[in-house]
């Protein structure tokens, strides 16, 4: 790689290296050992189908990628749009994530995490990278603070503007999130969709850092438990 990039400036090499390091980081985050607790049957079945599609992608089956796109693109695009607030950028991010999944499908190990979690991680990290870059640009240009993410407007129940039927999975997750206390919802959503650091979340919520960490811990644990017991 360094030979191929040798004609570039040191600055570009640094950027490329950073991107490579990020890619490695994403891969590392997915190389976790097998879970010790059982997952619900329907969820496990879905994960088996997803994993089989990724295996077929690894074998070079183009149609498998199309099928996986049909299964994942709705929530992935929704999440990317919620993070980026820009439809075109969200599509770019989802595009890059699927291309990466195609390229790295051979490295996927279902025992180390679900294909959906892998896809979400790829999309989220790329989207947050763009948001942070956008913030850096905005700060450079104007010193403007990032706009409010407006979760209250679009993060909860489905609106009439949605053109896609909400699936059973989405309804279950939304119901689980709705059981969280509001301050835990807000902290978890800011962490997931906002791309903020711990300190930035604390400032945004006007709460001590320790409180914010505790809210995220309790919120995520409760969400895990709620999703684990669903039928």
């Amino acid at each position: 790689m360094s030979t191929c990039l040798s004609f570039l400036s040191p600055g570009l090499l640094a950027v490329a290296g950073r991107d490579r390091a990020q890619a490695d980081g994403y891969r590392d985050r997915m190389t976790l050992p097998a879970p010790t607790s059982p997952t619900p049957p329907d969820s496990d079945e879905r994960q088996q189908i997803d994993a089989a599609l990724v295996q077929r992608m690894a074998a070079g089956e183009r149609d498998a990628l199309g099928d996986l796109y049909d299964r994942f693109s709705g929530p992935l695009l929704g999440a990317a749009q919620q993070i980026l607030r820009d439809s075109a950028e969200a599509q770019d991010v989802v595009h890059d994530a699927f291309v990466t999944m195609w390229e790295k499908a051979v490295t996927f190990d279902r025992t180390r995490g679900s294909a959906f979690a892998w896809a979400v991680t790829l999309v989220r990290n790329r989207a947050i990278d763009r948001v942070r870059m956008r913030r850096r640009r905005a700060e450079l240009l104007e010193g403007a603070a990032p706009a409010d993410l407006g979760y209250q407007e679009s993060g909860g129940e489905a609106t009439g503007r949605e053109t896609v039927t909400i699936g059973e999975e989405a309804r279950a997750v939304r119901a689980a999130v709705a059981t969280l206390p509001l301050e835990q919802q807000r902290a978890v959503e800011l962490a997931f969709f906002g791309g903020f650091t711990q300190e930035e979340i604390a400032r945004k919520l006007a709460a001590p850092l320790g409180t914010v960490k505790a809210r995220i811990r309790r919120g995520l644990l409760k969400l895990r438990d709620s999703l684990a017991v669903r039928p």
Binding site: G74, P75, G78, A90, H95, G113, R124, A170, V188
Partner: peptide, 30 residues
Amino acid sequence: ALVRELREASAALAHTAAAAPAPAALKARI
């Protein structure tokens, strides 16, 4: 195992976003 479970739970948050229609053009582009 705990990290994996929590990562799965956090990934599920993607479902809470307003679901966007999957453009056929994007699929073709990929």
